[in-house]
Nucleic acid binder design. Structure first.
Length: 284
DNA sequence: TAAATCCTGTCA
DNA sequence: TGACAGGATTTA
């Protein structure tokens, strides 16, 4: 599912293809997917694309911005005349674009036939037109915790963990505590750090804290280098799959052998989410 | 803190 | 056919 590496992969693609282009037209097919007054963005030029945790912000030259969260099944697809019109197999649903899951279509001016499509099968995502200065009025951006690979330090992680008596895995996924980690990377990082996902957060040793911090950075960086993980619906802005899904050590590997000790990987539910781990390698 | 909610495709 | 997938918000 789209987490920090996947959203950063999208950001890189948007930054590369959109900056300098002007929004000429916006076609909102499903109203709830884009809120705010379209007249603020039509005619404005795109200046940069930022990412905060799993959130994206497309900045415009008139002080307005489009804040975006793709949640689980959102896709931002860019096309122009230089990009092949044949569509990647990972866009199989509908087989073409736009399709019945395309909810917002931006027509751009700057490159020939430039278009940006927002697809979202489950409609959990959102796009909001807002003044860039008022981004922090959106609760998601206001309450977002520090991010790995950006401002989260080992010391900060230690303080966050000490404040919680609950299991460590749901804590790692709490965006208000730490920004950007979702189910895939919480599972993978805990395996790398050899810590059981049920472990009480405030019981880690100094060594385990250091290992967990390093493991979080390791899995996020590794996934970024593969262009993210295409678990189910994720594709980059050109509709291409990432590659990290082929390198999962525990996620989605229930009953398969642990790649370290061969023990069958266990799956449990924590806070309504699937949790995958090795009962032998990971310390409770 | 935990469950329900939003939603639709996939799989057993 | 029903359980499941899960990010973030809302409700209990």
């Amino acid at each position: 599912m789209p987490e920090l590496p996947e959203v950063e992969t999208i950001r890189l693609g948007l930054q590369k293809h959109l900056v300098g282009q002007t929004i000429e037209k916006v076609d909102v097919r499903l109203k709830k997917m884009l809120t705010g007054d379209i007249s603020y963005i039509v005619g404005a030029q795109i200046t940069s694309v930022e990412r905060f945790g799993k959130g994206l912000v497309i900045n415009l030259d008139n002080g307005y911005a489009i804040a975006i969260h793709i949640k689980m099944t959102g896709q931002l697809i860019y096309r122009d005349a230089t990009i092949a019109k044949s569509f990647h197999p990972s866009l199989k649903i509908g087989g073409t674009i736009p399709n019945k899951f395309t909810h917002v279509i931006f027509t751009l001016k700057g490159k020939s036939d430039a278009m940006l499509y927002y697809n979202d099968i489950r409609q959990f995502g959102w796009m909001k037109i807002i003044k860039r200065d008022e981004l922090k009025e959106l609760s998601f951006f206001k309450e977002l915790g520090p991010e790995p690979l950006k401002d989260l330090t080992e010391e900060m992680l230690g303080v966050i963990l000490l404040k919680s008596k609950g299991p460590i895995k749901p804590l790692l996924m709490d965006q208000k505590k730490i920004g950007g980690i979702g189910n895939i990377y919480a599972n993978e990082a805990l395996f790398q750090a050899k810590i059981d996902p049920r472990r009480k957060a405030n019981t880690l040793s100094e060594t385990e804290l250091a290992e967990l911090f390093a493991a979080i950075e390791f899995v996020l960086k590794k996934s970024l280098s593969y262009g993210g993980a295409s678990e189910v619906n994720f594709v980059n802005v050109l509709g291409e799959d990432g590659g990290y899904q082929h390198h999962f050590l525990v996620y989605a590997r229930e009953n398969e052998p642990c790649l370290v000790c061969q023990t069958a990987i266990t799956k449990i539910r924590q806070a309504g989410r699937g949790t995958f781990f090795c009962t032998v390698c990971q310390r409770l």
